[in-house]
Design a protein around this nucleic acid. Structure first.
Length: 443
RNA sequence: GUCCGAAUAGUGUAGAGGCCUAUCAUGGAGCCCUGUCGAGGCUCCGACCCGGGUUCGAAUCCCGGUUCGGGCGCCA
């Protein structure tokens, strides 16, 4: 790894036996200063961990000793010195400093505690997210998120998917259902995209065959829950010559792969969060919509009729039922009524009341939805009209269905929800660096 | 949007009309201390969201506002 002059090693890279008498430089934050009188410990924290800098009054320059014991917490320092094995110190060594350079002093008092001694509320933490990120538990969440995205990229790339980027500034709504953020695009009205749906389908006509995208989506819904964001990260795929069962298999195998990769590569961070991760077993249960509403009617006070969408309570009822009967947290609900799915979901030819669509559910919430898509121009145009949308606004999309559009299928999944359900996080904002919700626009 | 709840030092909290000159922890300032690792000991510092009202008396009760949290809705 490339490191610079101010820092020759991360705190976790120092092995006293290998280093010998060689000088090392560590750089980071003053995590704590423990002044015992004749001996003083400065705990330096960097991204990877902590290191103990030990100063014995009698053995060290008096000026350096007094300087060290007066360091203000969370200031930035670079320490150069020699390494001594010490079982009691973090990572099995302590650093005997020759120089301590104060690169930037922190103000005091701090806006919140970084050591884990005193809790802070989520709102306080988000107001000072930079400082919250210095806490071990918060850092762990984003290291795991990194592993999740890395595993997604690896899995999809290895299965022939090409990573793409599509516009976030668009002229038309994707599905009509959700509210959009309007913006000014020079002298025209435009919107922030709610989903890459139309563009990834266009890429199927373009012969890209299998694509994925990991990118932001924007929804202007004024929702106020622990599981919604107005700016979220969507993991989307689209694949030609596949049906909904094919892409469900990709999805379930990907989830299992992501879990096992996180378990393998982020063990330390799972431990920080006190999480024992269970890799879900594949294939996942595929529960037809019609059976799902029967489960709701039999196991709760809610009475649903065929054609109703599932309420939050209904999702919980089904999630608990599936978990109690199978022991698994992930399952699909398949064969949804065509009417409550978007225009691009393909109805069954022999039973057009239901569509080749699915939702991937976690015990606690919906994670993903997908379908085999309508690839026939006439049917697609009719379905757009039937949903009260104007086909003229979709011409850039519809056009691609007239000149050789293969049958295709795909899904989109909320990245935050994947991380959230994996970690059992109570609030989705916990797994976003700088969440955008109904109330928060800064930082 | 709607219903419920909350707001006390930098942070997290105790508090049920007079016990509040407001508790505890953490933190900050200072002193003591040579093996700490959530170090320990002593001293000090620092707060009742805003505006009205009830009352002899309000952190506490009432009304309005603001902000935050949660359920539902909308949505993924």
């Amino acid at each position: 790894m490339l490191l610079a002059k101010l820092r020759t090693h991360y705190s976790t890279q120092v092995n006293p036996e290998e280093i010998g008498d060689e000088k090392v430089s560590l750089a980071g934050w003053v995590h704590e200063v423990r002044d015992l009188g004749g001996i003083c410990f400065v705990v330096l924290r960097d991204r990877e961990g902590k290191a103990q800098v030990t100063l014995v009054k009698k053995k060290i320059d008096r000026e350096l000793f007094n300087f060290a014991r007066k360091l203000i917490r969370e200031s930035i320092i670079s320490v150069t010195g020699t390494v001594k094995p010490e079982e009691k110190a973090p990572n099995g060594y302590e650093l005997i400093p020759e120089t301590i350079e104060l690169l930037n002093e922190a103000e005091s008092p701090l806006p919140m505690d970084t050591t884990g001694k005193v809790d802070a509320e989520l709102d306080t933490r988000l107001d000072s997210r930079f400082m919250d990120l210095r806490r071990e538990k918060t850092h762990a969440v984003f290291r795991i998120r990194h592993e999740v995205l890395k595993a997604v990229r690896t899995f999809l790339s290895d299965n022939g998917f090409l990573e793409t980027s599509t516009p976030k500034v668009v002229a038309t709504a994707t599905e009509g259902g959700t509210a959009l953020f309007p913006i000014t695009y020079f002298d025209r009205e435009a919107f922030l995209n709610q989903s890459p749906q139309l563009f990834k389908q266009i890429l199927m006509s373009g012969g890209m065959d299998r694509v994925f995208e990991i990118g932001p989506i924007f929804r202007a819904e004024e929702h106020d829950t622990r599981r919604h964001l107005n700016e979220a990260t969507s993991i989307d795929i689209e694949a030609s010559f596949m049906d909904h069962f094919d892409v469900m298999e990709i999805l379930e195998e990907m989830i299992a792969f992501v879990y096992s990769e996180v378990k393998k590569n982020a063990a330390k961070f799972l431990e920080n969060l006190e999480i024992e991760l269970n890799v879900p077993k594949t294939p996942f249960l595929k529960l037809p919509y019609s059976e799902a509403i029967e489960i709701v009617n039999a196991n709760s006070d809610e009475k649903l009729v065929w054609g109703d969408d599932l309420s939050t309570l209904a999702e919980h009822t089904i999630g608990e039922y599936v978990f109690q009967t199978t022991g698994e947290e992930h399952y699909f609900i398949i064969d949804w009524p065509s009417e409550i799915k978007p225009f691009y979901a393909l109805p069954y030819e022999n039973d057009p009341e239901i569509s080749k669509s699915f939702d991937l559910m976690h015990r606690t919430m919906e994670l993903s939805s997908g379908a085999q898509r309508v690839h026939q121009y006439d049917l697609l145009k009719t379905r757009i009209e039937n949903q009260g949308l104007d086909p003229d606004g979709f011409e850039f999309y519809l056009k691609t269905f007239r000149y050789g559009m293969p049958p295709h299928a795909g899904w989109g999944m909320g990245c935050e929800r994947l991380v959230m359900t994996m970690l059992g996080t109570e609030n989705i904002r916990d797994v976003v660096l700088f969440p955008r919700d109904r109330k928060r626009l800064s930082p």
